[in-house]
């Protein structure tokens, strides 16, 4: 018996061909749509009169005007800088702890046995669940906010760093030993350089988380920062200004990501 046959496939439209590059024009159109469509929906909805009272959904223009006004008074910069400082401190501490820990876990089986079980467990505890505890232990000031950022990012960054380190081919390590390298030298001259791009990737992913957590931390108790500003504005239902702050949060996040991506591309030129 002969095998059943299928009709030949219809030619695939080039936009739906798997992993095939699109034309430059198609790419530009798609990227533009991805920005303009949500913006258009927002604008359409805000001028339609469907949302009442209208100030609950400000138009893009009103949001922009509010942002300019807040920027003019300097308030926006003070808040952004306050949030940024907390991220730099909290996430910076998390990096300082998680990178050596992750390298130890990814390099030595002993490190993995020692740290992986406890970190694998701790990372499932949501950082925001620690807020009450942190307030009890550290008060309402800066330390509790920095600690929240730290807790929110340190475990993930450790595990992701360890993964990046584990990606090194054993053959590179073997060859290093046969060239006379000692264990410390293998770590310093082979393991770390090889996993550096992966480590920066991990930092990039977790920087986004850190930026989220700082806003959460400031929603609770703060006297400055972008999250704090949103809470303040809520009391007076200044939705246009809340929108402006949200836009600023998004833009700063994007800038951080871009910066880290450029760093990664520079460091990982050899990949």
């Amino acid at each position: 018996m002969s095998l059943p046959r299928r009709r030949p496939p219809r030619p695939t439209p080039s936009l739906l061909a798997i992993r095939k590059p699109n034309s430059r024009r198609a790419t530009v159109v798609l990227v533009t749509l991805s920005v303009l469509v949500p913006l258009g929906l927002w604008w359409g909805l805000s001028v339609s009169g469907l949302i009442q009272p209208a100030r609950y959904l400000p138009t893009p223009a009103a949001t922009f005007a509010a942002a300019l006004e807040m920027a003019g008074s300097g308030q926006l910069f003070t808040d952004a800088w306050a949030s940024l400082q907390r991220v730099l401190l909290g996430f910076g501490l998390a990096i300082a702890v998680s990178v050596p820990l992750g390298i130890a876990m990814g390099t030595f089986r002993a490190g993995q046995s020692l740290f992986e079980p406890v970190i694998g467990l701790l990372r499932y505890l949501p950082a925001s669940a620690f807020i009450p505890l942190l307030i009890i232990w550290l008060g309402l000031g800066e330390p509790s906010k920095v600690a929240l950022l730290f807790i929110g990012t340190v475990f993930f960054n450790t595990l992701m760093t360890a993964d990046a380190v584990r990606g090194i081919p054993t053959s590179l390590i073997d060859v290093s030993y046969t060239l006379g390298a000692r264990t410390g030298e293998v770590v310093r001259k082979v393991v770390i350089p090889h996993s550096l791009p992966g480590m920066i990737d991990a930092v990039r992913v977790n920087a986004a988380a850190a930026w989220n957590f700082v806003v959460v931390a400031e929603l609770i108790a703060a006297d400055s920062g972008l999250g704090y500003r949103i809470v303040r504005l809520q009391r007076f239902s200044q939705v246009d200004r809340i929108f402006a702050v949200l836009a600023v949060i998004a833009l700063i996040g994007l800038a951080i990501d871009l910066l880290l991506r450029l760093t990664r591309d520079r460091v990982g030129r050899w990949t």
Binding site: L172, D174, Y177, T178, L179, V190, P193, H194, W270, T271
Partner: peptide, 19 residues
């Protein structure tokens, strides 16, 4: 233990890609 008195060349080459 491994040492520089026995040089090793592998099929994969195992050159350091970042160098």
């Amino acid at each position: 233990m491994p040492g520089p008195d026995r040089g090793l060349v592998l099929q994969s080459g195992a050159v350091f890609p970042w160098r």
